[in-house]
Simulated scan of single mutants.
Amino acid sequence: MKPLAILGGTFDPVHVGHLNAAWEAAELLDAEVHLMPASVPPHRPPPAASVEQRVAMLRAALAGQDRLGLDLRELERAGPSYTVDTLAELRAEHGDRPLVLLMGADAFAGLPTWHRWERLFELAHLGVFARPGFQFSLPTELEAAVSGRLADTGGDWRNQPTGRVLQLEVTPLEISATRIRHLLASGRSPRYLLPDRMFDMPGLLAAYRSDPG
């Protein structure tokens, strides 16, 4: 069975940077990849778009391909979207299937601020997006936790359900959802930053027309 990788986020809005990273992770890991929108993100302000709007944007962005999927479980669960709770739920569902939590290098460096972060290594592998040649610079607490866990994507990590840290060298795309929201709020078009299908459905972007947050 292929590994299952999860890319979480507010996706406010989802953009081609998210999709490219998820697509390349699917190739590098030979994995099934699901995008998982957060309901109440513990580390950031609430999304500008509603749950319904974000789901509609994700469905439009993912249409017409069969490599990337969508998992809405965090939107269906009350309270903050703690990753540790989501991974525990997935682990109970998938048994010994390898799970990979995907994240950017900045998020990985801030892992000690996450709720029950040490338990993440017991529930999944961690796949960290980085530019080619990137070297991790980690706080001491995280450096100790990562020691001995680094693994190559072509190695034998698939034989273990959890516990390894995989550095994923993906194409660097400097695209920010914040920047896209500002463009839309100022009346400009973020063409080529968002999937084409989102422009075919103008109502999807209505939430950002007057909100530069």
Rank of each mutant, 00 (worst) to 15 (best):
M1R: 13
P3A: 08
L4H: 06
L4R: 03
A5N: 02
L7M: 14
G8L: 07
G9M: 01
G9Q: 02
F11N: 02
P13Y: 08
V14I: 13
H15F: 11
L19C: 05
N20A: 11
A21H: 04
A21C: 09
E24R: 07
A26D: 00
A26E: 00
L28H: 04
L29F: 04
D30Y: 06
A31Y: 01
V33S: 03
P37N: 08
S39E: 07
V40M: 11
A48I: 15
V51L: 12
R54C: 00
R54I: 12
M57A: 12
M57Q: 12
R59E: 15
A60R: 13
L62Q: 01
G64D: 11
Q65S: 10
D66T: 06
R67L: 11
L70D: 02
L75E: 05
P80G: 10
V84M: 05
V84K: 07
V84C: 03
D85N: 12
T86L: 01
L87A: 10
L90E: 05
L90C: 06
R91V: 08
A92W: 05
A92F: 00
E93N: 00
R97Y: 06
P98M: 07
L99Q: 02
L101C: 08
M103R: 01
A105G: 02
F108P: 04
A109C: 10
A109W: 01
G110L: 02
L111W: 06
W117E: 01
E118K: 14
R119Q: 15
L120D: 06
L123N: 04
A124I: 06
H125A: 13
L126G: 04
L126C: 10
G127W: 02
F129C: 02
F129E: 01
G133I: 10
F134S: 01
F136I: 06
L138E: 09
L142D: 08
E143T: 14
R149Y: 08
A151Y: 06
T153E: 11
G154Y: 07
N159D: 14
P161K: 08
P161Y: 10
G163A: 10
G163K: 05
R164M: 07
V165H: 09
L166G: 03
Q167T: 11
L168Q: 04
E169R: 07
T171C: 00
S176F: 09
S176T: 08
A177C: 07
R179T: 13
I180S: 01
R181V: 14
R181K: 15
L184P: 03
L184V: 04
A185C: 02
S186P: 00
R188A: 15
R188H: 12
Y192M: 11
L193F: 12
L194A: 11
L194G: 12
P195K: 05
P195M: 05
R197V: 07
R197E: 15
M201H: 15
M201S: 12
L205Y: 04
A207Y: 13
A207C: 14
A207K: 04
Y208K: 01
P212S: 11
